[in-house]
Amino acid sequence: MWSSPFISTPSSVSQIMLRVLLALIPGIALYMWYFGPAILVSITLASITALATEAAMLKLRNRPIKPFLSDNSALLTAWLLALSIPPLAPWWLIVVGTAFAISVSKHLYGGLGNNPFNPAMVGYAVLIISFPVYMTHWLTPNALGHIELSFTEQVRYIFNGVLPAGLTLDAVTMATPLDTLKTQLHLSLSPEQIRNMPIFGYLAGKGSEMIAIGFAVGGIYLLFARIITWHLPVAFLASLFATSGIFYLADPGHYVAPLFHWFSGAAMLAAFFIITDPVTSPTTIKGKFIFAAGVGVLTYLIRVFGGFPDGVAFATLLLNICVPLIDAWTQPKVFGKKGGGK
């Protein structure tokens, strides 16, 4: 029996995901500008792996392949994971991470819409726990006076593990700005001294701060296109700002200013692309604030006091666990039952 409503908007999951992918492009373009085109290789590898894994899992689960493969959700997971790990890494690193993200953290939980954890972040967590060394070799930004690798040299390293003669991996990579900050603070340098090191730019790490701005631009597009709402990004950034601000004000000799945290690591990517994954974030407005604020606080704590280079992934996963509880606790009052009203 055909039943009402008989009309619907033309929007679709595939279109929503596609727009999110589009919104990543400014960040990716800046990534290429500052770090060379290796990121394209890892995005391509991740995309192929994601689609292949998705198709295989759908087949195993007896689900129609075409409509799910074209929903673009696997591609989004792939891109987010590729953007979260070092581009100059053996090819199998991204392949293993993506395959795990799609097969285990997405399909074993029931596929699209049923995964409690953000698949890209699960992929990241698996990689950083299993292959921590590969996860620390980040490319040095171009024009930093170091040796630059050409595209073919980057590709050769990714697939064959061979660097041009006379070069070591350490010569072309570095720790992330967040890691550098942490290490140097341990060496009793002041934040001021550290910030004057050549790898740092205006706000945070040279190059990476620009990528963060690129992601923020894409995120603002998503807000205007009404793909995401402001609650999650604003609550996350505010919480990260407030937490880092408190530490900074308490002891500027040991802690850096909030803006550094905004534009370091995956903060901007998290604010607009990771924690805004609707499947793994709360549905209520109040819940969104609690969730995003929680991710913000934990991100800071893990960054500053934890052993990992960034805190976004673990903070997100920890708050993902809490989503059902947060939703249950923050159910809004319905029409006419708000009490106290007229």
């Binding site: 008989f6 009309i7 619907s8 929007s11 679709s12 999951v13 929503i16 129609p64 409509p67 799910f68 929903d71 959700s73 029931g110 596929g111 699209l112 819409g113 049923n114 609707p278 499947v279 974030s281 549905t283 209520t284 939703d327 159910q331 809004p332 009052k333 319905v334 029409f335």
Partner: peptide
């Protein structure tokens, strides 16, 4: 009135909750 496209899983995007005049949580 074209037939509706294939039903996909709910992605909890809450567009339904945004438009619900009874202020319910349709996805739940």
């Amino acid at each position: 009135f074209p037939p509706p496209p294939l039903e996909l899983p709910c992605i909890r995007c809450t567009r339904c909750a945004d438009v619900c005049p009874a202020e319910l949580q349709p996805q739940d």
